[in-house]
Each structure stands twice: as C-alpha cells, then as structure tokens.
C-alpha cells in the first residue's frame, strides 16, 4: 500500500562528507522491505527517490542515507529535526530474503551501501552464517556504515579506488574470492551501474542474485515510464523495465547491461 504522508525528521547525522542520514517517524514507512524506497518532495519539480538505510518496525522509524548530488538532495540534507517532509511510500519491490541454508554476500558501492544495511538488519541473523559485506568507495572518507555492519557480526571487506583503506581497486577482486569459496552463495548488490554490471557478469549462472538499481525518476509509481533500464519483461522479450515499479531490486537475469 502506497501512502502520501507528512512525516517528521526526528534525527539527523552526517556520516561522511557530503552525506546525511535522516531518521523519520512513520509507522507506514516502517512496514517497508529492505530495498524499497520513498519519494520525497524537495524544492524542484520532481520528488527524490531515496532508499531506506534502516527500517525499525518496532519503533515505527526509518532512516534515509543520502548523498548531496544536486539541488534537491542539497535541500533535503539541510533539513533539521522537527521538519515535516512530504513523502510518498513505500515504493517499489525490495529484496527477497536470502535462503536460510545458503551463504550470502552483500556488495555495495558508495551511496548504494545503505539499502544493504537495511537488508542485513532484517535478515542477517536468520541465515546459516553471518553475511560477508564487500564495500567500495572512491576514498576511505566515503565508506558508509562500516562499523554498523561489523556490529551486526558481518565480515567486512573494504576496497577503495585510491587505496586509502582496504584493498586498492574495485569490489571485483574480493567478490571473485568470495564466489570461489562459496559456489552456492547468493549476492545482493547496490551501487553504480558499472559495478552492478560486473556483479552480474561474475555471478552468471547462479540463482538468487539481486541487484538494486538507480535511475532518474518521474512519477515513482509506474505511470510516466521515465526511469527505465534495458531488460527482459515477463514475456521474456527484451525491452525497457521500470526501476520504480518493476524494481528497483531486480534478479540479475532480468537485466541487460551494455
């Protein structure tokens, strides 16, 4: 059920330069599944789609961790506790829970990391083993939620483009290692499209690989057909899929990466 809501900001943190996490009080949004998102009114003509970094059903709270990239996110990042936000949600399809008997690994790049944290919060203790988390960023300062993942008992592997923390390079190398040692493992990934393309390539032939995508979005509810990406529809024919309602989480075999 999609709601049009006015919800208060109850807490605001700055976890990394240019990043802000806002906690919202909302029983409706707290019913979200990890990977789902909400569409928030800012100053511009379009709402801003932002996924949840935390979903706390018990306390009726969610959090959104956003990166300031333009005017809309700049406005949102400047809002303080007490402000009421105009929010539509929950929207889209979230991740499916991992199979209890399978190992799972989460791969996050930059501001794609937050929805993975919500997934580990929801399911991290229900699986056979605590998940491995591979986090990548351009620089160590831009790594998000590392301590939080560790606090949940995850094995955290870090890569940075400039080598300031963890392995230098992309998430590919540690992901290859993990896939080699976990032939039946599942992967949940969110991040820049080139990263998702390599996750899809490296996991080809496996099942239960979930990728969360981002795209410029219009209506958020499937009407305007703005936020499309190439993929295979229900008929199996190649075409465009809507990130807002067919996704934002897709099975890797649904997508076509050029």
């Amino acid at each position: 059920m999609i709601h049009l809501l006015r919800v208060p900001i109850i807490r605001r943190e700055e976890p990394a330069p240019g990043h802000v996490e806002l906690w919202l009080q909302s029983p409706e949004l707290a019913t979200s599944t990890p990977g789902q998102f909400a569409d928030v009114v800012t100053e511009g003509m379009l709402r801003r789609p932002i996924s949840f970094s935390r979903i706390d059903r018990a306390n009726h709270q969610v959090a959104m961790l956003l990166q300031v990239v333009g005017d809309g996110t700049r406005w949102l990042a400047a809002q303080r506790p007490g402000t009421m936000l105009d929010v539509m949600g929950p929207l889209g399809n979230g991740f499916l829970p991992p199979a209890p008997a399978r190992d799972w690994c989460l791969v996050g790049g930059g501001v794609g990391i937050p929805p993975l944290y919500a997934a580990v919060q929801a399911w991290g203790t229900h699986t056979a083993s605590r998940p491995t988390v591979i986090l990548g960023a351009r620089d160590q300062q831009l790594l998000l939620l590392v301590d939080e993942f560790q606090a949940l008992g995850c094995v955290v592997e870090i890569t940075t483009d400039n080598g300031t923390r963890g392995r230098r390079g992309t998430v590919e190398a540690p992901l290859c290692d993990w896939l080699d040692s976990h032939p039946d493992g599942q992967v949940y990934a969110c991040g820049p499209t080139p990263m998702l393309a390599s996750v899809a390539r490296l996991t080809q032939g496996r099942t239960g690989i979930f990728l969360a995508l981002e795209q410029r979005m219009g209506c958020g509810i499937g009407a305007c057909l703005a936020c499309v990406i190439p993929g295979y529809g229900v008929s199996g024919q190649a075409g465009y899929l809507r990130v807002c309602t067919d996704g934002p989480v897709f099975r890797s075999e649904e997508l076509i990466f050029e």
């Binding site: 003509m45 703005a226 499309v228």
Partner: peptide, 19 residues
Amino acid sequence: PGNPPPRVWETTGGLLNSI
C-alpha cells in the same frame, strides 16, 4: 519501445522529458 534513458531531467520551473 521508447527512447534510451535517461528520460527525464529537472530544469528551473520545469521538467524536460524524452520518453
């Protein structure tokens, strides 16, 4: 099939689309 993405872009007081 429609046009390749991105299909929308916000502008001052407006919205540019290429669906």
